[in-house]
């Protein structure tokens, strides 16, 4: 095992995939100069030993600022023999290529009766909470969950990011990855050998008996912190990260709620029609009899992102908000603990 950052793990996964399969290419804005730090073999600047040096400009290509053409070209290339990784940098830029995601990537295989497979990965990073203003801070993965035909991953740790990205590149279907920039510097032990993490398998970060907390992307570390705090107050928390949103391992979440009877879901996307809403609906459908309290969602408010740091931090889930949600549905436990204490 060795310790890696979240962003370093993404770069390492790309490097392994590029070495393993000549059909894998990386295209995107500024990938040659390693501006975003994932095409430099662990280095933060383009220099000797970077991806261009290692794999050549035939396979590492800067693109014009033309998201629609970049995405469409990658789809066409994937349909005819390549396995492109497209670096779209900011998740907010995906909107520029919406037609290609929805009408080509998601539909071609289905419409054409299975004639095509589209092995392409679209990477983008959610730069939220970093004072980049309303045009660079979106967390738009729920919009794409609404498009059958796309697969979606939203890793929250370094080892998950690496293993899932390898699976995404090996997948014969189009995959969108949503990386959380607030987690880029987070470190985790990562296996030294190459490994793949399958899609549709949730990761249970801690086991507990009183409440299930689902933490997605950048909200996972907050959920774990909230769980630590509540554990000290006598509430046993189970924390689950679905890791991939399409397909989603709802069985693990439902099984957990059948055990705990309570559910709080935290995610950095907007509340309305978010991943949390979908999880809440599935649990209400499949584990309603086990629920002893309402399901609570801790999401970004249905509000645009303001610039000022003082204002921006009002928008997203925080540890305190997750704690408040847990308190709201665990009043019985907290009362018992309080009674015992007094």
């Amino acid at each position: 095992m060795s310790v890696m950052t979240y962003i370093g793990a993404i770069g390492a996964a790309q490097q392994e995939a590029m070495s393993a399969d000549e059909r894998v290419i990386i295209i995107g804005e500024d990938v040659e100069a390693n501006v975003y730090g994932t095409t430099g073999g662990g280095k933060q600047r383009a220099e000797k030993g970077d991806f261009v040096e290692q794999f050549g400009q035939n396979r590492i290509r800067n693109t014009p600022i033309s998201e629609e053409a970049i995405v469409g070209t990658a789809i066409g290339a994937a349909m005819t023999g390549l396995r492109p990784i497209v670096d779209l940098s900011y998740s907010s830029f995906l909107y520029m290529a919406m037609d290609q995601f929805v009408n080509q990537a998601a539909k071609n295989r289905y419409m054409f009766g299975g004639q095509s497979s589209i092995p392409v990965v679209f990477r983008s990073a959610m730069f939220y909470g970093l004072n980049t203003g309303a045009h660079h801070s979106d967390r738009p993965y729920p919009m794409f969950m609404n498009v059958p035909g796309l697969k979606i991953m939203a890793p929250a740790t370094a080892s998950d990011a690496k293993g899932l990205l390898r699976s995404a590149i090996d997948s014969d279907d189009p995959v969108l990855t949503f990386e959380a920039v607030p987690l880029w510097g987070q470190k985790e032990e990562v296996p030294d050998e190459e490994y793949h993490i399958p899609f549709g398998v949730a990761r249970t970060h801690r086991e507990g008996s009183d409440i299930t907390i689902v933490g997605i992307s950048g909200s996972l570390p907050l959920a774990l912190q909230a769980a630590d705090e509540m554990e000290a107050r006598g509430v046993s928390c189970e924390v689950i990260d679905p890791r991939t949103l399409v397909p989603m391992d709802t069985d693990t979440i439902v099984r957990s709620v059948l055990k705990t009877g309570r559910l709080v879901i935290a995610e950095p996307a907007h509340r309305t029609c978010g991943a949390a809403a979908e999880i809440a609906a599935i649990v209400a459908d499949k584990a309603q009899h086990a629920l002893v309290a309402p399901i609570k969602r801790v999401c970004a408010l249905d509000m645009q992102v303001p610039f000022s740091p003082v204002l921006e931090r009002e928008i997203y889930p925080t540890k305190e908000r997750i704690v408040a949600a847990i308190e709201a549905v665990c009043a019985d436990q907290l009362n018992q603990v309080n009674r015992r204490a007094s």
Partner: peptide
């Protein structure tokens, strides 16, 4: 490789087919 009901949508798909030819 496919006709497209959305006009223009299939243009970059052909560009992609030519990119794969070039890379390979």
């Amino acid at each position: 490789l496919g006709e497209s009901g959305i006009t223009g949508s299939s243009i970059p798909i052909a560009v992609g087919a030519s990119l794969s030819a070039q890379v390979l």
